[in-house]
């Protein structure tokens, strides 16, 4: 189903509706995410998007963008390397690093880049094939 070296890409936009929906769903109104003056004071150009919005994009990628929907997420690891701002356009690039046929598990390495080609996050996913 998956083979080492398989590569996938998916585009995402951190729209206002994604941002507002995240806050509505999870109630994280930390000033870094909601108060521009506070974010400026801390050295950011605008409010910083919640890092876990990217995990939502990863969920979409795993559930909807692979050649099969018959997968289950086993493990997920992420490192945030650059802030993400509202209306950023992100590209997720994911590659199968290894496939374990015995237990039908694919290990992915992935990263997100923004419209300036800055890497904003990277990590690993482990998916089981159902």
């Amino acid at each position: 189903m998956f083979a080492k070296g398989d590569r996938y890409q998916q585009e995402y936009r951190v729209s206002d509706s994604v941002y507002q929906g995240f806050i509505r769903s999870f109630q994280d109104r930390n000033p870094l995410h909601t108060q521009a003056d506070y974010a400026h004071e801390k050295g950011f150009r605008d409010v910083v998007m919640h890092g876990n919005i990217l995990n939502g994009f990863l969920s979409h990628f795993v559930g909807e963008c692979l050649p099969t929907r018959e997968v289950i997420l086993h493990t997920q690891q992420i490192q945030f390397t650059h802030p993400v701002y509202r209306n950023d356009n992100l590209r997720l690039v994911a590659e199968v690093e290894d496939y374990h046929e015995s237990v039908r598990v694919a290990e992915f390495r992935y990263y997100f880049v923004n419209q300036l080609e800055q890497k904003v996050a990277r990590g690993k996913l482990t998916l089981g094939c159902l």
Partner: peptide, 9 residues
Amino acid sequence: HIQLVVAIE
């Protein structure tokens, strides 16, 4: 068990 097998492999 699946995670153990992956780690052992």
